[in-house]
């Protein structure tokens, strides 16, 4: 297990785009220490920010997090990255495989454009978790994003594939959703604004849009299959689907092929 130990709170935002187990496995500690990670003219390197211990394994631990650590695990394709603390924006952006775990909280745009692997945030997530960054065609794109705490607004904005599990999220979850699945303990107002397809399940929710219409409480095989697939990820989310679910169809302002489920009771 390789380790990066944060020396102190970074004086500027740090970009860890190219710091992953695969890249570090081919490097000496001296070479790794010279990788530029700063974002100002001061030219900070990995060795300036972290004390480094590498063993060539496919597992990397970042000890001591900071909200200024951007793009942690971005473009990860294999192996495991574990952050003991917080991270900044674009956690796991563009990730294709492997496992990424954050014990603290994440900044905005976590898992944006991630096509594979599992990203787990044990604390809270900022706005647009699983959402698209500026000018991107899609947000989450096939990966699995699990948030134990609360996510901000715009969860899964423009997501195209994959699953998001979250305890609680803010307004407009699943906005402009192209496809994919969001399962939440509770959601804020106006979920699914502009969604074209996809599925949102919420234990409770804020105000629904006038462009979502109720379509009854059908007993769908799909929901049982979804519950079964979620059981291996988080039992509490799978349990949400056990009772009778009320279905809404939307957003009728767009294609209207999205669906929103909430307990009928």
């Amino acid at each position: 297990m390789s380790t990066l130990k944060l020396r102190s709170e970074p004086p500027e935002r740090i970009d860890l785009l190219n710091i992953n187990p695969l890249a570090l496995s081919k490097m000496s500690e001296a070479d790794a220490a010279r990788i530029p990670v700063g974002t100002s003219r001061r030219g900070l390197t990995l060795g300036d920010v972290f004390s480094i211990a590498l063993d060539g394994s496919d597992s990397l631990v970042i000890e001591g997090g900071s909200g200024r650590l951007d793009r942690v695990g971005a473009s990860l394709s294999q192996g495991t990255v574990r952050v003991e603390g917080d991270v900044g924006q674009r956690l796991g952006a563009g990730m294709a495989g492997g496992s990424l775990i954050v014990t603290g909280s994440a900044g905005p745009f976590a898992a944006s454009g991630a096509t594979g692997g599992t990203i787990t945030i044990e604390g809270d997530a900022g706005d647009h978790a699983g959402g698209a960054v500026y000018a991107a065609k899609a947000g989450l794109d096939g990966a699995t994003l699990i948030i134990h705490g609360t996510a901000g607004d715009g969860l899964g904005d423009r997501m195209r594939r994959g699953i998001i599990l979250v305890d609680k999220a803010g307004a407009r979850a699943g906005s402009r959703m192209i496809a994919g699945t969001i399962v939440a303990g509770s959601l804020g107002a106006e979920p699914g604004y502009g969604m074209r397809r996809g599925t949102i399940v919420a234990g409770s929710h804020g105000a629904l849009l006038p462009t979502f219409v109720e379509t009854g409480t059908p007993d769908l095989v799909f929901l049982r299959l979804l519950a079964r697939s979620l059981a291996g990820l988080r039992t509490k989310h799978a349990d949400l689907l056990k009772g009778c679910m009320r279905r809404y169809s939307g957003d009728l302002a767009t294609l209207g092929k999205g669906e929103f489920f909430t307990p009928a009771g």
């Binding site: 604004y193 502009g194 302002a253």
Partner: peptide
């Protein structure tokens, strides 16, 4: 923005 969506529907 909600009103525009409502009109679009």
């Amino acid at each position: 923005d909600v009103a525009i969506g409502h009109l679009r529907a």
